[in-house]
Nucleic acid binder design. Structure first.
Lengths: 187, 187
DNA sequence: GGTCGTGATGTCACAATCTGACATCAGCGA
DNA sequence: TCGCTGATGTCAGATTGTGACATCACGACC
C-alpha cells in the first residue's frame, strides 16, 4: 500500500488545465486545483513556482528539442538554416494526436495575459538557448540572436496555425511554410 | 495651497525605480514605494495594475511611435521596409541624453524575470500592432506577423547594444546595423 | 457668497498568492 | 530493530491586489 498516489505534479497539471478551461484562470484558486488533485495548497507550490507555471512543464526538454536540432545541423549550414533544423526537430515532436490537447492549452493561454506573458518568457528562453548554440557554431552577435528570434517567430506562427480550428496540415508542414515566408519577407 | 502634490504617478515611478535599484525588486514592497512617494498603498494600485507595471508607462505612446512609422512608410514599400520605418520612428525618439535613465531601467529589468516577462509582453503588443498596421497595408499573414516580430527582434538587439557599457553610438545607427544584419541572415 | 458636484485620495476589510519552519510517517537499507 | 530519507501536511505570516465607502479641496453655477 502506497502512502500517497504517485505523480502529484501530473495530477496538479491536469486539474489546473481542466479548471482553467471550465471556469477561467482568475476564478480558479490554487486551493481548488490542489483539492481536485488531492493534495494541499502547500504541495502545489512545492512543484510549481507560481500559479501560472503549472501550464508549462519540462522547459528543459522543450528547449532541448530546438537546441539539439541546431547542434545537429551541418557544420557549414548558414545560421538561419541551422535555426530551421532546430524548428524541424521541435515540430516533429508535435504529432497530430497531440493537437487537441495543444489546442485546449492554447485557448486557455491566449485568453489570459498573465499566461501569455509566461509563455513569451519560455519562448524567449528557447530563443536565448538557440542563439547560444549558434554562437558555439561561430555565428557572431547580433546575427545569432536575430536568427534565433526570427525562428521563434516562425514557430509561433506555425503553432498558432496548427491549433487553429479546422486545420488539418501538420506542424512540420506549417513550419516549412513559415520559413519560406520569412526568407521572402527579408527579400 | 494644493490639497495633494501633483503627479503622483510620476513620483511613484521614480520612487519605484530608485528602490528597485537600491535594494532589488523582491525586497521592495509596494508599501515602501508608496511611502517614498507620499501616498498610500491603495493609491499605488489605482495608477498601476500591479507592482511590475510601475516601470512601464505610456504603452500607447510607445507603440504609437512604431505604428505611425509603419503607416507613414511609402505605400509601395515592402513589408520589412515599412517595419524599418517604424523602428526608425521609435529609435529617433530615444536621444542620447535618455541613455543613462534607460540603462538603469534595463539593468533593473534584466535582473528580474518577472520584469523581463512584462517587458516581453509589452514588446509583443507593439509587434501585434505593427502587424495589424501591415495588414492594413495589404500584407497577408503570416508575413505581417513575421516581419513585425523580426523587427521587434532587431529593436531589442539594438536597444541592448545602446545601453551596453561604453557604447557611444546612437540607437538609430545601431538599429540600421540590425536591419542590415537581419537581411544578411535571411540571405 | 452659497451650494453642489467631481475627482483624487484615504480608510478599512478581505481574498488570494507565496514562503518559512517544523511535524509526520511509510519505506528502505544497515 | 533502528534510524534515515523524502514527500507531504500543518500552521503562521508577509505581500499582493480589490471592493466599498468616506473625505474634502476645488471649481462651476446660481
Amino acid at each position: 500500500m502506497v502512502r500517497w498516489e504517485p505523480d502529484a505534479a501530473g495530477r496538479l497539471r491536469r486539474a489546473a488545465l481542466e479548471l482553467f478551461a471550465e471556469r477561467g484562470v482568475e476564478a480558479t484558486t490554487v486551493a481548488a486545483i490542489a483539492e481536485r488533485a488531492g493534495v494541499t495548497e502547500r504541495t502545489f507550490f512545492r512543484y510549481f513556482r507560481d500559479k501560472r507555471e503549472v501550464l508549462f512543464g519540462d522547459q528543459e526538454g522543450f528547449a532541448g528539442l530546438f537546441v539539439e536540432g541546431v547542434r545537429a545541423a551541418a557544420p557549414d549550414a548558414a545560421p538561419l538554416e541551422a535555426v530551421a533544423a532546430g524548428l524541424r526537430s521541435a515540430s516533429d515532436f508535435f504529432t497530430d494526436d497531440a493537437r487537441d490537447g495543444a489546442r485546449l492549452r492554447s485557448t486557455v493561454i491566449d485568453a489570459h495575459p498573465g499566461l501569455r506573458e509566461r509563455e513569451l518568457l519560455k519562448m524567449a528562453d528557447v530563443g536565448d538557448r538557440m542563439a547560444a548554440a549558434l554562437r558555439e557554431r561561430g555565428v557572431a552577435e547580433p546575427g545569432a540572436s536575430l536568427a534565433a528570434k526570427s525562428g521563434i517567430a516562425v514557430f509561433h506562427a506555425a503553432f498558432a496555425a496548427w491549433v487553429a480550428p479546422g486545420q488539418t496540415r501538420g506542424l512540420a508542414d506549417l513550419t516549412e511554410d513559415g520559413l519560406r515566408e520569412l526568407r521572402a519577407i527579408a527579400r
